[in-house]
Amino acid sequence: MGTNTATRPVRGQTTALPDHTPRLEYRTFTSTPLNILENGLCVDRRQVYATGRSNGDGLAGLPACRMAVRIAAISPRK
Rank of each mutant, 00 (worst) to 15 (best):
R46K: 11
S54W: 14
M67P: 00
D57K: 07
G56P: 06
L37A: 13
G61E: 12
T7G: 07
L34N: 02
G58E: 12
L41F: 15
T28N: 02
N4R: 09
L62M: 09
V48G: 00
G12L: 06
P76H: 02
P9T: 02
R45E: 07
A16G: 09
G58Q: 15
R23I: 02
C65H: 15
S54C: 14
L37P: 05
N39C: 12
N35A: 14
Y49P: 00
M67C: 01
A6N: 14
A72E: 11
L37M: 15
D19Y: 08
N35Q: 14
V10M: 12
H20G: 09
P18R: 08
C65D: 14
V10C: 07
A60C: 06
G61D: 14
R70T: 07
T32A: 11
G58S: 15
G56H: 08
D44F: 08
L41K: 11
L62Y: 08
C42P: 11
G61T: 13
S54M: 12
N39I: 10
I36D: 12
P33Y: 00
P22S: 01
A72M: 06
N4I: 15
R66E: 15
G52W: 07
D19T: 14
N55F: 14
R70V: 04
K78N: 06
G56T: 11
L59H: 10
D19F: 09
A50G: 00
P33W: 03
T5W: 14
L41C: 13
A68K: 12
Q47K: 13
F29C: 04
R45P: 02
T21Y: 02
T28H: 04
T21V: 13
C42E: 15
T5P: 05
A73Q: 00
T3L: 14
N35P: 03
H20M: 06
D19W: 09
A60F: 01
R66N: 13
K78E: 04
A50P: 00
V48P: 00
A72R: 12
T30Y: 00
T21D: 03
G40V: 08
T30E: 00
